[in-house]
Simulated scan of single mutants.
Amino acid sequence: MAKPSSTSMTMRLVHRYLGFFLVGIMAVYATSGIVLIFRDTDFLKQEHHFEKQLATNISPEDLGQALDLRRLKVEKTEGSIYYFKEGTYDSATGAAAYTLKELPTILEKMTHLHKAKSSEPLFFLNIFFGLSLLFFVISSFWMFMPKTEVFRKGLYFTLGGIVLTLVLLFV
């Protein structure tokens, strides 16, 4: 059996310790990724009731911004009361009452981290994590000697994974 090259040993070493280092964040991304699949349902969400005193006579178009609710749409108006999916707003008194369904705090923080945008400070972590995953993909080919049976079988599994990915992307 041939002795592994220094490149192979370096890749294995970095792969191993980077993997240990990223265990926590990989668990967070895996969990939040699964939770995000169900973001269009009420799965794991809890109801929170809110009552706010706003300015009077806010227009239906500006109500969503005043309540900090994206995509708020006033469904009907009866007198001074605006009805929307989440609750009501009385334009005469400024009283708003509404209910939101939200994930528990820890899951909300995890999904927020998972979806960090470039305008947020955590986006560097997402870039680092993405590059680390890409390194894991590449370095896995240095884990076994190329002439071994395990490596050949690994290439078959790689081909199967690539085909499955292409099918999922294009079908």
Rank of each mutant, 00 (worst) to 15 (best):
A2L: 07
A2H: 08
P4D: 03
S8I: 06
S8Q: 13
S8H: 10
M9V: 14
T10G: 10
M11F: 13
R12W: 08
L13M: 09
V14F: 02
V14S: 02
V14W: 01
H15S: 00
H15T: 03
H15L: 01
Y17R: 12
Y17E: 08
L18N: 08
F20W: 12
F20P: 07
F21H: 04
F21W: 07
L22G: 06
V23E: 07
M26Y: 08
A27K: 09
T31Y: 06
V35A: 00
L36I: 03
I37V: 06
T41V: 05
K45V: 01
E47C: 05
H48V: 15
H49M: 14
E51L: 10
Q53C: 10
L54A: 07
T56Y: 12
N57H: 15
N57P: 08
S59T: 15
P60Y: 09
P60F: 07
E61F: 12
E61I: 06
L63I: 10
Q65A: 06
A66Q: 03
L67S: 06
L67H: 05
L67F: 07
L69I: 14
R71I: 07
L72F: 13
K73N: 02
E75Q: 03
E75K: 00
K76V: 04
K76Q: 08
K76W: 13
E78P: 04
S80M: 05
S80P: 04
I81W: 03
Y82D: 00
F84H: 00
K85P: 06
E86G: 05
A92T: 11
T93P: 03
T93H: 09
G94M: 03
A96R: 01
K101D: 01
E102R: 14
I106F: 10
L107D: 02
E108G: 10
E108A: 14
E108H: 15
K109A: 01
T111W: 08
H112W: 01
H112M: 03
L113M: 05
H114L: 00
H114F: 00
H114D: 00
K115E: 13
K117C: 06
S119Q: 13
S119V: 14
P121E: 11
P121N: 13
L122E: 15
L122K: 12
L122H: 12
F123A: 12
L125H: 12
L133C: 14
L133R: 04
S139M: 06
M143Q: 02
K147A: 00
E149D: 13
E149Y: 14
R152T: 10
K153H: 09
K153P: 10
G154V: 04
Y156F: 13
F157T: 08
L159K: 11
L159T: 05
G161S: 00
V163E: 08
V163P: 08
T165G: 02
T165D: 02
L169V: 08
L169I: 12
